[in-house]
Design a protein around this nucleic acid. Structure first.
Lengths: 162, 162
DNA sequence: TATTGTTATACTCTATAACTATA
DNA sequence: TATAGTTATAGAGTATAACAATA
């Protein structure tokens, strides 16, 4: 099934690895957007829910910085998931300017669905690769991400569905 | 130098291969945008110049479809490089509705610089990977791109520099 | 009537900066 | 005076659809 060593293409695939990464990354982001749309979520909303799962109770400023989103945009993002009953803002008694963010029960439920969607998406992208190829690919990509100074949480490439 | 088999991270890097691809792809696109900005080009302009290099004389419609850009946007794209003297529109005698697109001498010159930029960018991204890792990575990415139905020319992920 | 290229317009997404309430 | 959150506004980028010239 895997066409090992297929380099017969001419002209050669433009731009090599960097071009392929940009091209595939954009397509992966689009496919992910389509998948989470089935849960009535946008990719930024999905990213926020996941971040809250990991760091429940942190302030909006904290999440906004962590996710690389400007505070003004972040407000609307929180509004959108709060109005759907997925996330709660809780005033902090110690500093009444700040809100801590928490998932509601409905939010926790949706996160399970989101986990399934993520696994299906992963399978979509890596379909046809052997376990060895996947391991090597994951290692190479992690190496590149580290070299580019990318941190696991920040995802500058979220894309809305048109 | 390469940290082979580094899977100690916790929590594990989010989303696995698909997430890494989207994250890296976005960053690669941004870095490329910064590099071509040194030539006073945007990524879509660079993509157009490269396409014309390969298929000089084809019509605007042909290129627009090939690059996945709507005709209305394509007009402005051609305008921008024509005004800089990099590209020429030539009316077709056989069908006076259509224009064939050609690089000017200045355009050919700039393409050489663009080639250098592309190679430097490729090195930026793949820095620290062994020759074997690069070959395996290229193969895996080509496989993924084929699986996603991506063609070598179309690049839906061009991103403007902000 | 259909097609190439063009223009006009409207819409989406985003960031900048001003504003409020608390500290 | 400084900070968390919010709101208002303006800009960039994009697509949709109407238009002119040629077939």
């Amino acid at each position: 099934m895997t066409m090992a060593g297929d380099t017969r293409r001419e002209p050669p695939r433009g731009g090599g690895i960097a071009f392929l990464l940009a091209q595939i990354g954009a397509q992966a982001a689009t496919l992910f957007a389509e998948r989470v749309a089935a849960l009535d979520l946008t990719p930024p909303q999905a990213g926020l829910l996941r971040a809250i799962t990991r760091q429940a109770g942190e302030s909006q400023q904290w999440f906004a910085k962590r996710l690389g989103v400007p505070p003004s945009r972040f407000v609307q993002l929180v509004d959108s998931v709060e109005q759907r009953g997925l996330v709660e803002r809780r005033r902090r008694p110690t500093d009444r300017r700040a809100y801590g963010l928490y998932l509601t029960d409905a939010g926790e439920e949706l996160m399970k669905e989101l986990g399934k969607v993520g696994r299906a998406h992963e399978e979509d992208i890596t379909r046809g690769l052997s376990a060895e190829q996947r391991a090597a690919l994951h290692e190479a990509l992690t190496h590149i991400a580290d070299g580019l100074g990318l941190t696991p949480e920040v995802h500058p490439g979220y894309r809305q569905l048109r």
